[in-house]
């Protein structure tokens, strides 16, 4: 099994052992079938034990899994006739955010998402899914076009955060994110956001002001990457695990905090284990929600989005 995570190791070792015994049976003609059966049962139990009780930190690792399906994977499986568009018309084309128009069950929609690379070369091109201002401005341009032509907007969120670099600051990282937040609040079309992997701080939020926000079961959404939180709170970035546990960043946490509208189940062991099943589950949610939001007028959509965010937050009165 490629790309195994540390907590999956006992299971992988057990599965390897089963494979070995099978081979032994074939090669030497000695019958180990009882032993294989016993181990298979044990592997099943172990898998249930591991994947049924994932800790927040383990979910973070799954969200960052190198084989985790990306925005382009979902676009390919969910939509037809995808036409990718490029550039912010101001500075450049940021490959860490992709977007364009496509058809969902025959109807045109606008799709946008953070794009992580599939290998090292691709990751360098995609800047590991961390956008510069031109990425957010490209996304804004594409969304404004969706608004103009009355197409729903689907956003896939998967970034560890906005890129913390010199050029990004010089070109107005803050302003680019802020403007998206304000403008997304004004669009007269339905906006559905799905966190498919990492929902890292302002970089994630910049394309997440939706009428509906869903998270995949093993994704996370946080004000700051757990390692950075640990660096700030305890001056030690190696305490990322502790930060992940205490900051309430998993899908069930966000549902409980009233930030998201629902959780999309993942196949056993994570989205990358069964891309088709995962894409089908995502599509079902998008189709259902578009159906619901389609009944709202443009003004109601704006109002719905405003109220959604107005409700978020917890405080008390003296």
């Amino acid at each position: 099994m490629a790309g195994e995570l540390p907590f999956e190791k006992p299971l992988v070792e057990l599965q390897d052992k089963i494979k070995e015994l099978r081979r032994f049976t074939e090669e030497k003609g000695i019958d180990f079938s009882d032993e294989v059966k016993r181990l298979e049962q044990k592997a099943k139990e172990l898998a249930e034990q591991i994947y049924g009780n994932l800790t927040p930190w383990q979910r973070v690792q799954l969200a960052r899994h190198p084989e985790r399906p990306t925005t382009l994977d979902y676009i390919q499986l969910l939509f037809t006739d995808f036409i990718e568009v490029h550039g912010d018309r101001l500075y450049g084309d940021d490959h860490s955010i992709v977007g364009g128009i496509a058809k969902l069950d025959g109807r045109p929609v606008t799709v946008i998402g953070h794009q992580k690379g599939k290998d090292t070369k691709d990751n360098i091109k995609r800047n590991f899914g961390m956008a510069h201002p031109e990425g957010y401005r490209k996304a804004l341009r594409i969304m404004q076009q969706a608004d103009k032509f009355g197409r729903p907007i689907i956003c896939f969120i998967n970034t560890s955060g906005a890129y913390p670099g010199k050029a990004a600051e010089e070109r107005g990282q803050s302003e680019a994110i802020a403007r998206n937040l304000r403008e997304m609040a004004t669009f007269r079309v339905p906006i559905i956001c799905i966190v498919i992997g990492e929902g890292g701080s302002g970089g994630a939020l910049a394309i997440s002001v939706g009428n509906r926000i869903y998270m995949l079961e093993n994704s996370y959404y946080s004000v700051i990457a757990p390692e950075s939180a640990a660096a700030i709170l305890w001056r030690d970035s190696s305490l990322g695990m502790r930060a992940a546990e205490s900051m309430k960043i998993t899908a069930p946490d966000l549902l409980a905090l009233g930030v998201i509208d629902g959780i999309i189940d993942e196949p056993f062991g994570g989205a990358h284990r069964d891309l088709i099943a995962q894409a089908t589950a995502v599509k079902t949610v998008i189709a259902e929600q578009l159906e619901q939001l389609g009944r709202l007028s443009p003004d109601e959509l704006i109002q719905d989005r405003y109220e959604k965010f107005k409700r978020i937050g917890e405080y008390a009165s003296l």
Binding site: L205, V209, V223, K248, V259, F309, K310, I312
Partner: peptide, 11 residues
């Protein structure tokens, strides 16, 4: 206040 703080940006 974690992600609730983040959402205040959008609000």
């Amino acid at each position: 206040e974690g992600v609730l703080s983040l959402m205040q940006m959008a609000k």
